[in-house]
Simulated scan of single mutants.
Amino acid sequence: MQKKLILNADDYGWDKDATAGILNLVTSGKIQNVSILANHCTAAELQNIQPYQSSVSTGLHVCLNAGMPVLKTSSSSIQHESGAFFSSKELFIKALTGKVTYKDVYNEINAQYTLLKDAGIEVSHADSHQHLHQYPFLSSMITQALHEVGIKKIRNCMPYSIYDTRRIIVAGFCAGTKNNLRKFSSPDVLITDFTNKHFNFNTQVPELLKRLNTSSYQTIEWMCHPALADRQGSYLQRKNEYDFLMNCDWDELLKELSIGLSKYSFL
Rank of each mutant, 00 (worst) to 15 (best):
K103L: 13
L60A: 06
T177H: 11
E207W: 09
R182I: 12
N65H: 05
S55Y: 00
S139W: 00
S76T: 01
Y160S: 06
G13W: 09
A126C: 04
F194T: 08
W250I: 03
G260N: 13
T73S: 05
A20D: 06
T214R: 11
I6E: 02
L181A: 09
Q130T: 12
G120C: 07
H61L: 02
C174I: 01
Q32D: 10
K210Q: 04
E252P: 12
N213M: 07
D193R: 13
S28Q: 13
L181I: 00
Q53N: 08
Y102H: 15
M141A: 12
Q204R: 01
S161A: 14
Q130L: 08
H40D: 09
Q134M: 04
T101Y: 07
Q232I: 14
S88H: 11
L115G: 04
L37M: 15
Y135F: 15
I142T: 04
K16H: 05
H80E: 15
M1N: 14
S216V: 09
Q47Y: 11
I31D: 01
N107W: 10
N48K: 14
G120K: 01
W14L: 15
V189D: 04
L46D: 02
H129I: 02
P226S: 14
Y235R: 10
N33M: 11
H133P: 00
P136L: 14
D188E: 03
D118V: 04
P159E: 08
L267Y: 15
S216N: 13
M141G: 06
N65E: 13
E90G: 11
V105I: 06
L257D: 00
H125N: 13
V105E: 06
T203N: 13
A20M: 02
Q134D: 02
K99E: 09
V189T: 15
E252S: 13
D15Q: 01
R231P: 02
S262C: 09
R167C: 07
L115M: 11
Y102D: 01
W250G: 01
T177E: 09
E148R: 10
R211G: 09
S124T: 12
T219V: 05
Q134E: 15
C248L: 02
L37T: 02
S88W: 04
H131T: 07
K3M: 07
K210M: 04
K263C: 00
N180A: 12
D127K: 11
N179A: 12
D127I: 03
G172A: 10
S185W: 08
S35N: 02
D243Y: 00
K103F: 03
S74Y: 00
H133T: 03
S215T: 15
Y235G: 08
I168G: 04
M1D: 14
W14A: 12
G29W: 03
L208P: 02
K3R: 01
Q79G: 07
P51N: 14
M246V: 07
L228V: 08
T73W: 03
T219M: 06
